[in-house]
Design a protein around this nucleic acid. Sequence first.
DNA 1: CCGCATGTTTGCGG
DNA 2: CCCGCAAACATGCG
Length: 260
Amino acid sequence: MPELPEVAYQKIYIDSTSLHQKIVDVELGAPKIFQNPQEEFKSALLDNEFTSTTQIGKYLFLEMKKGRVLVIHFGMTGKMDYFTHNEVHKHAQLTLTFQDGAKLSFICPRKFGKLFLADSIETFREQQKLGPHASDISQKNFLQLFESKKGSVKTALMDQSFIAGLGNLYVDEILFQCGIHPKSRIENLNTDEVTATYKKMQNILKTVTKNKSEGEPLPETYLRSHRSCGENCPNGKGKIEMIKVGGRSTYFCPECQKLK
DNA sequence: CCGCATGTTTGCGG
DNA sequence: CCCGCAAACATGCG
């Protein structure tokens, strides 16, 4: 559940189930998930309660009544599970029991997720060198950011210290909808192209977030629905190809996306 | 068995 | 110092 829209959905999920309830039990899973000593998680969470949540990029911050902040990074397969039955999920890495008996688990099969305890959102943000939350950036700020950035456009958009929240799937989507080849160098993009990238980014994040939270299907014209080798491009001409950019599988249409 | 998967980090080389 | 690339992490799916 990893990129900005999925994390936004997890935020809504937690907000609507788990705020303002006293935590009466804490169960911990695989040690590698926990970025502070496991004992600290126990003592910080027990007898505490979540008061509000904040999202920056792919991170979710759960602020607590007694001061500290539980920070969740979902990795590739993490998600929350709120339940009132008795079977705890096989891959639960953290399970909290609330006073009314309901439970909230952090599920993470591949164990790429991480849990932190932070003193404040700001100090955590500085430590992790997190850039601005993608859907909050203004067009002006986006253009400024691109002025001083070099390298391939895909690598830049994936860089969490540059812009926080975009991942492999939606960067491919943005570049596809802009008609920009993912290996294009930022130095070679003109202002119109960067502006178009900004607009597509905002539009896609909004559309996908709505898709996650309200179940509205994604448009058929999205690369997302055709994202595998040899598929027909939704624009009608080419066939989707896969290359590696920044070490990640990158799907694109060679007809629609020319190298700049 | 093989390749691939929404992410991040580390080490190496240019 | 910057950039790019490969590998590693762990599990599931086709």
